[in-house]
Amino acid sequence: MSSYHLNRFLFDLKMNQSVLKRASADLQSVMNEYDLTAEETEALKSGDPRRLRPLGAHGMVSLYILRLNPAFRDNVYWAQK
């Protein structure tokens, strides 16, 4: 099964400020805008990139879920592409 929507959501977290801002405030409602499975939604809510890769998230894209983690929100990683 394609993981396109899971990857798309993670990609948008990094590349789309509006998605990041809205997801930071209400993750569930933004996830509802994507065609995600229940398993993908649960893995995203866990915030653990290592749970996303087995579901088909690209290894580097899975890291982008950390952008919602307060401990990594201002990480220098996001200041470079």
């Binding site: 396109y4 990857n7 798309r8 990094k14 690209h58 580097m60 200041a79 470079q80 592409k81």
Partner: peptide
């Protein structure tokens, strides 16, 4: 490219840039 210009909707195997100019930012 590492998902800055291309994503799973289109991934070119080889790509030539025909822009007039190119820009980017790395930290400061």
């Amino acid at each position: 490219d590492q998902f800055v210009n291309f994503f799973f909707n289109v991934i070119p195997t080889f790509f030539i840039t025909l822009a007039d100019e190119v820009k980017g930012q790395f930290t400061r």
